[in-house]
């Protein structure tokens, strides 16, 4: 099959577009596709990774709902707008402040928002100083996990609370 655009080179990209009720299929060679700005796997693969990651991170950050901008992080003062601009969060507390948005973002980036790796056991000094803090934090997480019907996480949190108690 020849390219629909130049009629010379063999078509390598078959693009199907759906607009309203009409479906159109165009067959293009790689060169014409590139000229028309169609991104193929091959051309995506040529992009350096940082650009790609930035587009994943920032693209997703930019897609966060605008009305979520109301407040900043109580600890570092960062706002969602800052995050959108830099692709970086300001501090660990931002994850709690913007929890809803970040959960959605993590799901989009990683396909999941629930950590399944190593569990961090706080440094001894920190635990002794704030066992109550950790306990309360876990309890709060548990409440939210149940609310979000994330029962797998809830079970894990309950286990961890038991160990702590």
């Amino acid at each position: 099959m020849q390219c629909d655009n130049c009629g010379e080179r063999p078509a390598a990209i078959h693009l199907t577009q759906i607009e309203g009720n009409s479906v159109t299929t165009v067959h293009l060679c790689e060169q014409c596709a590139a000229e028309k700005g169609v991104q193929t796997g091959a051309s995506v693969a040529k992009l350096p990774l940082s650009g790609f990651l930035a587009s994943v991170g920032q693209g997703a950050a930019a897609a966060l709902p605008a009305d979520a901008d109301a407040g900043g992080c109580g600890f570092c003062g960062a706002t969602l707008q800052d995050f959108r601009a830099t692709g970086r969060l300001g501090c660990a507390h931002c994850y709690v402040t913007f929890e809803q948005q970040i959960r959605e973002l993590l799901r989009r980036i990683h396909g999941s928002h629930v950590h399944a790796g190593r569990i961090y056991l706080p440094a001894t000094a920190a635990t002794e100083a704030e066992p109550v803090h950790l306990h309360a934090e876990l309890r709060e997480q548990l409440r939210r996990a149940v609310e979000a019907e994330n029962f797998e996480l809830a079970a894990e949190l309950r286990d961890r609370l038991k160990v702590l108690e």
């Binding site: 969060l89 994850y95 993590l106 997480q141 961890r160």
Partner: peptide, 11 residues
């Protein structure tokens, strides 16, 4: 974070 794991500057 019990749900999100180790927290990093970039999600």
């Amino acid at each position: 974070h019990p749900e999100f794991g180790y927290l990093t500057a970039c999600p």
